[in-house]
């Protein structure tokens, strides 16, 4: 669907994007994750044809964004970080203009506009000036704009920035709905967002790709030691000693203590399954287990370990 190879973009001496390559498959939601200033927006601006790369290639549906821009751009709907809205137009006027701009055939226009307005839930403000809309509504109008012309790919740059929690959830649900019909590339510096929405994640830092994988794959790859959370009733010191003595257990640490109920975190060697032996050890001492679960590393852990290991490598 989209092939990005060896993308480089310089701003002065600064390499904003440094040899980025990845592909986006049809029908998936790709999360583009990185701290502010990592090169997310620059990459998105290049792949939508707004900026030109210093070197490298972007193919959209086989069409080069520089050599056949009209064909490539037709299959992309783009919502930049700041929604490109004309504040002096009403929502309908604006969407009509976008239809004109993208060359949507006249007879399809009304149907398409009505459908999109229903989908992103802006039908009730269709006659109002964009200037008078709230941030959440403006963001939706921005998404509506990207949807016009029914492009195969949607590129959304930080679509939930500046919205309140309720609006964020609504926009995320909307993106999930959209992904049924479109390939979506979504950038964010908010980890739970990517975790909630995306199939695959590209992590970039300082213009370079730090990792590309599915969420599960990333979790596996980075769980160099797996963690278990255990809540039980009993004395901490004795229990810790007993668990620590079990084969495969690397570390035991106390998370929270209230009355006689302890919450501990056990770090184990991923090669041995220690769960059974922990259970029997607790049972034999009559310390009832109240909660026992394995802790997968969150994207936050992944992100930190990936970006910090990149830094270590550089040094």
């Amino acid at each position: 669907m989209i092939e990005i190879s060896n993308l480089v973009k310089y701003y002065g001496d600064k390499k904003a994007v440094d040899h980025i390559s990845f592909t986006v498959n049809k029908g998936e939601i790709l999360g583009f994750l990185g701290p502010n200033g990592a090169g997310k927006s620059t990459t998105m601006n290049i792949l939508t044809g707004y900026l030109s790369a210093t070197s490298g290639k972007v193919l959209v549906n086989g069409a080069d964004i520089l050599e056949q821009p009209e064909i490539a751009k037709k299959s992309i709907g783009y919502l930049p970080e700041q929604p490109p809205l004309y504040l002096d137009m009403t929502v309908v006027e604006y969407l009509k203009f976008i239809c004109d701009l993208k060359g949507v055939p006249k007879d399809e226009r009304i149907r398409q506009m009505a459908e999109i307005m229903r989908l992103v839930k802006i039908s009730d403000v269709s006659g109002r000036l964009i200037h008078n809309l709230s941030k959440g509504y403006r963001q939706r109008v921005g998404i509506a704009q990207a949807l016009i012309g029914n492009p195969e790919v949607l590129v959304l740059d930080e679509p939930t920035v500046g919205l309140d929690p309720k609006q964020i959830i609504e926009i995320r649900n909307l993106i999930k709905t959209l992904s049924k019909r479109h390939t979506v590339i979504l950038s964010s510096h908010i980890l739970p967002e990517v975790q909630a929405v995306c199939d695959r994640v590209v992590i970039i830092n300082k213009g370079k790709i730090a990792a590309i994988d599915t969420q599960d794959g990333l979790s596996h790859k980075l769980s160099s030691n797996s963690k278990l959370a255990l809540t039980f009733e009993g004395p901490f010191r004795e229990a810790a000693g007993k668990i620590h003595a079990l084969p495969g257990v690397i570390d035991v640490s106390l998370i929270r203590e209230s009355d006689s109920i302890q919450q501990i975190e056990i770090t184990t060697d991923p090669k041995t399954d220690t769960r059974k032996s922990i259970f029997f050890a607790m049972a034999s001492s009559s310390w009832p287990i109240l909660e026992f679960r394995s802790l997968d590393p969150t994207l936050e852990d992944i992100f930190l370990s990936v970006t910090s290991s990149e830094e270590k490598k550089r040094r």
Binding site: Y50, E70, I71, I76, P80, L85, L101, K102, G103
Partner: peptide, 14 residues
């Protein structure tokens, strides 16, 4: 200034 130029440059219009 308004960031709407993105719209014009990413639209399939030369």
């Amino acid at each position: 200034k308004n960031g709407t130029e993105v719209l014009l440059y990413t639209a399939p219009v030369p």
